[in-house]
Amino acid sequence: MTMVALRSLEPVRLLAERSRWRAAEFVFWSFVVASYFLFPGYLVLISQILIAGLFALSLDLLLGFGGMPSLGHAAFFGLGAYTAGLLGQMGWGEPISGLLLSGIVAGVFGLVCSLFLSRLRTTAFLMVTLTLGLLLREFANRWSGLTGGDDGLSDIALWPLFGVFRFGLSGHTAFWYGLCVTFIVFLLVRRLVHSPVGLALEAMRENERRAVALGISPRLMVIAIFTLSSAIAGLAGALLTQTTSFVALEVLSFERSAGVLIMLVLGGVGTLYGALVGAAVYLVARDVLSALDPVYWYFWLGLIIVMVVLFANDGLVGLSQRLQARAVRRWEAA
């Protein structure tokens, strides 16, 4: 029965099915847009979520699709943030060119790092990315003449977007700007993972030896994907600088590298939407729980991570898909 059905299907339809836009995706993005009207008091928080989500998306590309776990991804986020900040301090406040330039700087640095990292896998990869992140943070901390050290960078001039929309405290411009950038990058990443390159990336993650036997060069793949992921992380960092007019040393911290990993795993690795959902849950939870008591936020955070690892390995997106599948089965049985 299924064989007949499959035979009559055009093979390319099987591929198209992979990348088809699902109803849940339209609902998701509509909700993001609607949140502007639903939660007008929380626009700043929502912008932060979008930025963190974009950062987590860059890690999803690396970890979820390429299978490479990084413990130092804040290096590229921070590099983007500082580049945008320094541009603003030096008097160039045009947002879009500043954003792109920051992404390029982070991407070039990622390219250089990936030349070394392409030889490493698993634990060695984790440790070297971790060291890289620490190195950059300490560098920024010590070279305070450029980076402001512990005090960070403030007084960052930012011109109005398209010469019209000012970045104010209310966060209206930041919201739409962040949403547009995140959505555009999301579309590009979504396209990429549904292209032959995306398939090759998944193949690398699934079985590197077999991928090599198909003629996929792991070195080139690692370099390409690490560079792209770094550039996107840099864009996210630059967005943070531009929407808050401030750079703190914290953008390079280990806590941020660990945090983005946690967001991604919380939302679901390798699902794209998990990055955004995880960022939202993480930041909202932090807002609520640290309002109760900032110290114990760490306790709840730790507990959430332990629970996710032990009981919901595929994250919230995976969990909701399992629940959905179960509901469908029930409905069909009834």
Binding site: A16, S19, G198, I216
Partner: peptide, 25 residues
Amino acid sequence: FEAVVLAVCRRERLLRNPSRLLSGC
């Protein structure tokens, strides 16, 4: 199927062209 499509796409050097979607192959 995906694996074999990947092998064919690799042979035709489509991995150098990230703008091409799988549904266009």
